[in-house]
Design a protein around this nucleic acid. Sequence first.
DNA 1: GCGCATCATGAAAGTGATTTTCACTAACAT
DNA 2: ATGTTAGTGAAAATCACTTTCATGATGCGC
Lengths: 143, 143
Amino acid sequence: MKRVKKKIFHDYIARQGLKSTRQRDIILEAFLSSDRHLSIEELYLKLRVKHPNIGYATVYRTLKLFAESGIAREMQFGDGQTRYDHVGEGEHHDHLVCTGCGAIIEFENETIETLQNEVAAAHGFLIKTHKLELYGLCARCRG
Amino acid sequence: MKRVKKKIFHDYIARQGLKSTRQRDIILEAFLSSDRHLSIEELYLKLRVKHPNIGYATVYRTLKLFAESGIAREMQFGDGQTRYDHVGEGEHHDHLVCTGCGAIIEFENETIETLQNEVAAAHGFLIKTHKLELYGLCARCRG
DNA sequence: GCGCATCATGAAAGTGATTTTCACTAACAT
DNA sequence: ATGTTAGTGAAAATCACTTTCATGATGCGC
Ligand SMILES: [Mn+2]
Ligand SMILES: [Mn+2]
Ligand SMILES: [Zn+2]
Ligand SMILES: [Zn+2]
């Protein structure tokens, strides 16, 4: 899994004529080993422990590259920070977001996806991506 | 329609012990007469033509009030600006967003809404709101 | 109407999360 | 090894709000 994503990223870097750097590899490993939905700052702080010389701007720019290469997805859950989700080959999932504790649960629903495509088709739209987020209280927070 | 929303807003203002002001009425009229999905700045610039003395902060605060009163909804379409959508009594719709020309098309799909509730129920979630946006190219942009 | 406790307004300053700049360094093709 | 081009990190700049503060309206009770 990690191996596959590292290859996808390195292939992307090569294809774009970009360079392979120590920092990018360190950030890539940290990203792939981290929880999903981390913000730039969260990943930066995590990295800083073992790599205090890596700058915030580099983490920021590298996460953008991850998104461009297809191994990450930029997310906005309304908490004011951009978060980066992990993306698997040909996989897709949507989110349930708890407004109480901030928990984020992932789910997949093929029927909804199909209906979305029907809606798009009915409007002559060609869908590239979509965002489906359900906000509310998780089982634990709805006391 | 406008009449109904103005009443909803004025009732809200009264209920909260707030005051009815010239500015709020001007902004309300401009908002209800405007295109949907306008940003604070867009509405501010539109207003400035006939009311150059109304400040940005007042537009900002008044749009928040509209959202609180239930006649508007804050939206984030990923272009970096918060947009305010019009909300009708008991109505709900989702959006198709063209990444080519920025066009925003509204749609309703009861089946999808039902499926969303089933997903939430399956996870013990109590849904408060949701966001469904389909991004892609509109009929005109997919040349 | 008048007084006045509140709330509202507008200009300007403050915030927080990026995003860009710039001087310097590292990659890598030759 | 060298030159060319891309990358890095610290700091400054942006951007879109958001709050502050001195001043101005509102509107209930006389
Ligand atoms: Mn996810
Ligand atoms: Mn809409
Ligand atoms: Zn929760
Ligand atoms: Zn379009």
